[in-house]
C-alpha cells in the first residue's frame, strides 16, 4: 500500500510566482522512512502541504492510502497524514498539554473515553507522560515539539510528516525529536517523512529524496545520495560531517569511505594508519 502517492502533480502559488512544481511523481510506501532534503525554496514544505490537503494541486492527483485528497475525502486524508510544523509555538492551540493533545481527536468526534486513552498513548509515545497537566508555555522547545507530535499521534495517522520540525530547536531538542521519530518508526511501525536541511538527520532514513526548484533531482539510499558529493553541492546542500571527513581524508591520500557509520570509519582509519 502506498502511504502517499503524487501522480504528475502540478502546483504554483499563483501566476506571478517564480516557484512552481511541474509533473511531480512521488510515492512513499507504508512503513517506509523517507527523508526529503533540499535548501530553502526547493519545494519540500510545499510537498508536505500538498500531501495532507492544505494545498490543492493545480493538476494531477494526490492520494493517501488510496484515498484521493479532494472534496469530501479531504478530512479522511488529513486524519491519515499528520503534519508536524516548524515552529512549536505556532501549532499548539491550548495552554495545557492534555488539552492540546486532545484537540485533533476532539475535532474528528472521537468519544470521550477513547480520547483519554489516545492522550495516554500519544504522550507515552513521545515520552512526556509526566507532563500531562503541565502548562505548555513553560516547556522547552524540544518538549513543545514533542507535544506537537503527540497531538498528531492522537489522530492515529498512518504517516507522519515532519516539516523541518527540528529547525528551530537547539541540538538537545533536535536529538530528542530524532529519538522519538526513531522509536515511532520501530515500535509503532509508523510511516515517516522527514523534511529537513540537516543532512545528519537523513542518515537514518530508508530512502533520501533531494528536491531542487520544485523537482525531485536525486533519489536513493542515504548511502548512495551522500556518495555523490559534487551533485549535492550543486543543489546547495552540505555533506553530513562524516562524509565530509571521509572526503578530506581521501583527498589527503588515504583510502577510506563508503560508510555512514562512525564506528566503521574509525576502524578503517585505524587500519590505514597502521
Amino acid at each position: 500500500m502506498q502511504a502517499i502517492a503524487f501522480e504528475s502533480v502540478d502546483f504554483s502559488y499563483g501566476e506571478d510566482s517564480a516557484f512552481r512544481i511541474k509533473n511531480l511523481n512521488f510515492t512513499v510506501e507504508e512503513g517506509e522512512f523517507v527523508a526529503v532534503l533540499g535548501h530553502n525554496g526547493s519545494g519540500k514544505s510545499t510537498l508536505a502541504r500538498l500531501a495532507n490537503g492544505i494545498l490543492t494541486p493545480d493538476g494531477g492527483k494526490v492520494s493517501a492510502f488510496g484515498i484521493p485528497a479532494e472534496g469530501k475525502n479531504l478530512y479522511e486524508v488529513r486524519k491519515k497524514v499528520g503534519v508536524v510544523f516548524q515552529n512549536p509555538d505556532n501549532q499548539t492551540v491550548a495552554s495545557i498539554v492534555e488539552d492540546d493533545v486532545a484537540f485533533g481527536a476532539e475535532n474528528v468526534g472521537t468519544p470521550r473515553e477513547e480520547i483519554g486513552k489516545r492522550i495516554e498513548f500519544a504522550l507515552k509515545a513521545v515520552g512526556m507522560e509526566e507532563y500531562r497537566h503541565a502548562t505548555i508555555a513553560r516547556l522547552s522547545g524540544g518538549q513543545k515539539q514533542r507535544i506537537a507530535i503527540a497531538g498528531v499521534l492522537a489522530l492515529k495517522p498512518g504517516v507522519i510528516i515532519l516539516d523541518e520540525s527540528t529547525a528551530m530547536l537547539d541540538p538537545r531538542g533536535r536529538r530528542e525529536i530524532m529519538e522519538v521519530v526513531k522509536r515511532l518508526k520501530e515500535e509503532e511501525g509508523l510511516t515517516v517523512v522527514l523534511i529537513t536541511h540537516f543532512m545528519e538527520e537523513a542518515l537514518m532514513a530508508d530512502r533520501a529524496v533531494v528536491m531542487n526548484r520544485g523537482e525531485i533531482v536525486m533519489q536513493g539510499t542515504p548511502q548512495e545520495i551522500f556518495s555523490r558529493s559534487e551533485d549535492l553541492i550543486t543543489y546547495n546542500l552540505v555533506l553530513p560531517r562524516i562524509r565530509y571527513i571521509e572526503q578530506r581524508l581521501n583527498e589527503g591520500g588515504m583510502s577510506v569511505g563508503g560508510t555512514l557509520d562512525t564506528q566503521i570509519l574509525a576502524e578503517e582509519i585505524a587500519r590505514c594508519v597502521s
Binding site: 492544505i54 488529513r78 499528520g82 510544523f85 492551540v93 485533533g104
Partner: peptide, 26 residues
Amino acid sequence: RRADELGEAMDARCYMGSKNRTKYKK
C-alpha cells in the same frame, strides 16, 4: 504570521468548527 501558521496547523489536525466535535474535558 503566527495566526496564519496556527490556522494551517489547525487545518492539518482536522479542525472543522463545532460540527460533530466532541469535548474531552467535562
